[in-house]
């Protein structure tokens, strides 16, 4: 049973999503889908390598897919939120809502 008054037990929370950066990626993709890699870089304010690492984790879980292509002559990576990812995001928000202390 989670303690709702002080510290929160996050066992019930999807660990793939939870984590500041992955949470941010999922939140942004829930509104802008797909988003380009540079767009996610600029929005999350993280480094190239860090973003790649966290995107790979989300991709391994099937929550996002990365599509390599070209925008004109420039290479471009588009990150798509998958249906499974959207479902997991909604479940995650529901879990958070149930864990946070009610006023």
């Amino acid at each position: 049973m989670p303690n709702k008054s002080s510290n929160i037990d996050i066992d019930a929370i999807d660990e793939v999503i939870h984590g500041r950066l992955r949470l941010g990626i999922m939140a942004y993709l829930s509104a802008v889908n797909p988003a380009s890699f540079p767009e996610l870089l600029s929005k999350t304010g993280t480094s190239n390598g860090n973003l790649s690492t966290h995107l790979s984790k989300l991709e391994s879980a099937g929550y996002v897919t990365q599509e390599k292509g070209f925008a004109g002559k420039k290479p471009q990576t588009l990150v798509h939120l998958t249906d499974v990812g959207r479902e997991a995001w909604i479940d995650y928000l529901d879990a958070m809502r149930s864990l946070l202390p009610t006023q």
Partner: peptide, 14 residues
Amino acid sequence: NDLNYATDLAKSGQ
């Protein structure tokens, strides 16, 4: 704090 960060990102997209 993490949730606020996520909310800001979601709002910036929306």
